[in-house]
Design a protein around this nucleic acid. Sequence first.
DNA 1: CCTACTATGAAATAGTAA
DNA 2: TTACTATTTCATAGTAGG
Length: 609
Amino acid sequence: MDKNLSGEDNDDIDWDTEDELEIQEIQDTVFSSCTDLRTTGQHVVCCDGEASSSSVPFRSKFIQQFVVMGFPEESIAKAIEQNGENSDLVLDSLLTFKALDDSPEEQPSVSPPLEPSISSDDSASEYNKNVLDNVYEDDSWSSDSDNYINTVKQCYLNDEGSSLSEKEKMLLFLGNMGYPAEEASIAMDRCGPKASLPELVDFICAAQMSRAEDPYLLEDVKPNLKDILNDCGGYKKRKMYNELCKRKKQREISVEETIRLPKPMIGFGIPTESVPRMVQRILPEKIIGPPYFYYENVALAPKGVWDTIKRHLYEIEPEFVDSKYFSATARKRGYLHNLPIENRFPLFPLPPRTIHEALPLSKRWWPSWDTRSKLNCLQTAIGSARLTDKIRKAVEKYDGEPPMEIQKYVLYHCKKWNLVWVGRNKVAPLEPDEVEMLLGFPKNHTRGGGISRTDRYKSLGNSFQVDTVAYHLSVLRDLFPNGINVLSLFSGIGGAEVALYRLGVPLNNVVSVEKSEVNRNIVRSWWEQTNQRGNLIHFDDVQLLSRDQLKKLIESVGGFDLVIGGSPCNNLAGSNRVSRDGLEGRESSLFFDYVRILDDVKSIMSRHR
DNA sequence: CCTACTATGAAATAGTAA
DNA sequence: TTACTATTTCATAGTAGG
């Protein structure tokens, strides 16, 4: 598993690899200042506690980080004078000083001039295009690089009206700071056209923190804009960075901590285990609820995603649980929360735990060579009719057991699409009501009320497995015998609400934030059908839920006891072939709104006490 | 517009054998 | 260790038809 993460010295291509290190180094240092750039003031979660609680004044600490790197103090002072207390800019200047100091006349021969590209006629774009084409003439680039060059080209050449738009200039600038064009472009798309430089840097940092410590990425050959444009002293800087990285590696011997999934994926314990191996965990005083919070997302996210999530949620250890230990269907998810984990209890009645129990009618048609006892993860799309037809034709040619090859083919697709046997030689996708049952929802929960069948699959596929979540939330029943106030973000079809209700936790006030109207209707309808006595307040968009609104809500309901939600997994899920972009993806980056809202709720509530 | 249907791999992980 | 195999995955985009 562990590939070569020690930076061995291969001079041929290693400069690319080292370049990634270079970026890491920048980000490591920049990040400490990123939190300071935040204007909201309450975002202290991603700072390490020591730094903020230390009595060392900020300024000296700021200087010290460069002293540790081995820069002379006068250079540091000069760099700070030029750039202010912005780590990345200061570091950039320092390295430029150093590079120029070492060899005043030496300029890399391949360095193209930067200035012409800032002019504002079409030749500039043409020039960049040529440069980029030339760079990519080299066939040592991997296909990854091909994708990358397309991104870069698009960044430069998209807007034909103005050859160098504001966006392009900003891209150039970020590129010069050492950020990959791809990331910079995403950041600018996400932050909008009016975003300031600190905002963009902050975004890129947040998005990239995960990858900064990702050992695999060291092999990933991705050039960045800085190298394409090769600014002043770039070569020397690179060398400097290499040394810095080595020094840093020597300093930090043990860090390299990536989150690992537990081998039986049972989190802090499951109810059916004969020997409950409950784990003791001690949370810092500050983060013990109320408000309690509960965050959920896919367990098998791209590398580093869960590290980032953890970092933004108080460094609490997530618990990874596969719902196959609760029901007949697998669902590998990570749950990060500050709930107590002692004295949990499961939801009753216990759901069926095997396919045969869950779908008794299928037993009759189930061939012996299909040895599945659990279904795979229920997703948002179902298998095609054409596929089930092909399977039928493939199987019905044989009287008894089909040959191994056929079995293999059929099983592969049955597992991939969660097909079940519904007749002689006939397989089919699950019906929506079967999915409801497997996920722990009442029958017809998503049925009717103007939702299409396709959307039922979609909403269900994006939902909680109720029994699993309820097991974790069960501790709330005794904590809040008089009921709780819930802030439910990304509510979907109300998995959290259903879980609490089925646990017997009275719901006093539920503020539910959900973008999809049909989903809101489903929850509203369920709320009325179950004769809830509390209040259900709906909101549309988490991004529009401001601190002021939260303050008013908290005042009117008397504070939230639970903030619960699973942010979009679109850009994290393995089934996404198109835009598995990680936490910075278009939808999945809404995770940062979860963090923002949770922080706001905590700070508003602590002020009221 | 809505709805249903279909084609579309890669990344991450664990396990195993060399 | 390293290289190979096996398994799994809260999805998107395009098309056709109403």
